[in-house]
Amino acid sequence: MTEPLLVVDGAGKRYGTRWACRGVNFQLHSGEMLAVVGESGSGKTTLLRLLAARLPCDEGRVLYRMRAESAAESGTLTDIAALSAARLRWLARTDWGYVEQHAHDGLRLNVSGGANVGERLMALGVRHYGRLRGEALEWMRRVELDTARIDDLPATYSGGMQRRLQIARNLVTRPRLVLMDEPTTGLDVSVQARLLDLLRKLTEELHLAAIIVTHDLGVARLLAQRTIVMRDGRVVEAGLTDRVLDDPQHPYTQLLVSSVLQP
């Protein structure tokens, strides 16, 4: 069996005396998708920000397997708190993807759709205009965006298109870990279905490790092999997604599952 790409070891974050999330443990391997479910305020987004090193842990650790120097060795598992700011910036621009819930956090709204996709490649040193544009077109096609809109500003895109543009912008650098905050929330049902299909295909093709924060249990069921359930900053239940949803053990998970129409 493979070695984990990400190890979360007792991670927690405190605001004043209140713990936004605490005692989180799990491991994630390449090719796996993990869903984090729970209601608003349960600490899901805080957890995601800890994993992306956007917030420091107040207890516990987050370990990430750095890319190997050569194909023969496997990378070393490194505490992200020990990495320099420059190294973290490099990871955030290349090896990690972060799909934000709100387009204005995840896109640059004052440059074209194509430039949004090209930006992370430029951070890797790609300067050739033809190549940048070629990659942008290719990724717009892969996320099923109309390539005729490549020069339009993202503000003129629909919510579903903006979400797909964010995905293209993140995946263009071939990250190994992608974090997604409510990627289907606020979209029409038909657009949601299309996005689910797209995410499923891309994670499989690219052998990504992905974490998807969602309050939609149906999304968790269709995309994630494993699910953790958070409440008041704590993981109250974790396991295979179908087991968690079909035979929930914790009172809160039972409430959550019984409250939706068809989980």
Partner: peptide, 26 residues
């Protein structure tokens, strides 16, 4: 652990449920 059960489900034990639950559009 979960990963072992997933492995066994891929390699050893199949399940045909009463209803099909899949990603729409596939």
């Amino acid at each position: 652990d979960d990963r072992t059960v997933l492995y066994l489900r891929r390699r050893v034990i199949g399940h045909v449920s009463q209803f099909l639950r899949v990603v729409p559009r596939v």
